[in-house]
Design a protein around this nucleic acid. Structure first.
Lengths: 220, 220
DNA sequence: TAATAAAACGAACGGTCGTGCTATTAATCG
DNA sequence: CGATTAATAGCACGACCGTTCGTTTTATTA
């Protein structure tokens, strides 16, 4: 397999959305990504609040100070972890639905991908839950840049969902519908992770299908 | 107003569910309740993880060690905070619905009370959100007694909701219905607290009414 | 390869955390 | 009241936190 040499700053797209940094990317850039991925895995298990420098450095086999030098503060690191997780979310949950040519079917596909992400977020070695949703509840009342980033990501997600709803069910009230769908995803997270209910997915899908069949309608 | 003297261990029911400890209750018992209430207020603002001995002692105007002496460990304190919050939840959200004699209407009443609690949980001086739901997402992947307590409380809540659903809509699939209702409450929390959407309640109620009109049905 | 810049390290800092002790004060009861 | 017990304070500890700094190692480039 012949490939042209990568110049600095280029990345080899691998299709899984992760990308392999080219050899001429500065070393700092490479470890920076390593740090963010491992931090996301950590956040996946114990929430953003669990992203702490000591344990993170241990996992990466490097020193606290060496790690810290990549970021201006711990808060900045936490924000970047959320950004990175949001990128992965886009790649795993959102991007793939564009392959469905029947646009009306995209909403169902999106919801399905989302449930998959909630059950198994593709974040490094983490076997835990989605750090984005955790952050939403962890920081919903804590002012600061983390809260802003969380709210910002959620706003984008809501906007996307409203568009998907409008295309799939033009007669439905978009905002009420988004509330219902978002809610089903959140409740699924609880029943799957906290309650460990083996029937969680079945129940979620049953409710979702009923919702699609009889959505809240626009008010006249 | 004449009242009989309270014996030790008795509490004067005030109707607001809080109760005034009788004068013969040991002082330790009284401050213990004070601690739990203030801790719940703290948890309300920054999650259970924010219930930390130093700041809590400051708020109460007492020493860290004096406070700590009331509990075997910080973890035990956190669990008791959740228990206390769950008690208040029962008093504020669940108990009042028994006054509705038309049992079919109780589900709607419950949901309404729940939204009120989510917007303004009656927990001491805290102006933040519901510490129970925060704990669900904060500890859904963190093993330990806090997680167990959270899961336990949620299980009871789900059981109650299933019963309410069965009475109100016998033809509905209880578990799917619970998923949808639970989800609407969770999503409401996000739209109300994180997004600060002034229309949150309207959208939530719209979706809820559509759900009541066309619930997911039992499978044959 | 030598010169230069980037990255990682090790040690230390002030601070806060949870948790033991011992002494002291306050509540309770005979 | 005085005697006894419960409640609180004061203090110290070891661990970990985020952060800084000066040094050393490793990449990069000329």
């Amino acid at each position: 397999m012949i490939m042209k040499a990568l110049k600095r700053g280029e990345t080899l797209e691998t299709g899984d959305g992760r990308g392999i940094p080219g050899p001429d990317v500065t070393k700092g850039e490479r470890t920076r990504v390593r740090i963010l991925d491992e931090a996301a895995a950590l956040a996946s298990e114990g929430g953003i609040g669990a992203v702490t420098l000591g344990p993170l450095a241990d996992r990466l086999g490097m020193s606290k100070s060496g790690l810290f030098a990549h970021f201006k503060s711990k808060e900045a690191l936490q924000v970047e972890v959320l950004v990175r997780a949001a990128e992965r979310f886009t790649e795993v949950v959102i991007e793939p639905i564009r392959e469905e040519k029947d646009k009306a079917k995209r909403l169902g596909l999106f919801f399905n991908n989302w449930l998959g992400w909630i059950e198994h977020p593709s974040l490094g070695s983490g076997r835990g839950g989605c750090p984005i949703l955790s952050a939403h509840f962890e920081f919903d009342d804590v002012p600061g840049p983390v809260r802003e980033q969380a709210a910002n990501h959620n706003a984008q997600l809501y906007a996307l969902m409203r568009r998907l709803v409008y295309v799939a069910l033009p007669q439905a009230d978009e905002k009420a519908m988004v509330a219902a769908i978002d809610g089903l995803a959140l409740s699924h997270l609880l029943r799957f992770r906290l309650m460990r209910d083996p029937a969680a997915r079945k129940d979620t899908m049953h409710a979702f299908e009923a919702l699609m069949k009889n959505p809240p309608l626009k008010v006249a």
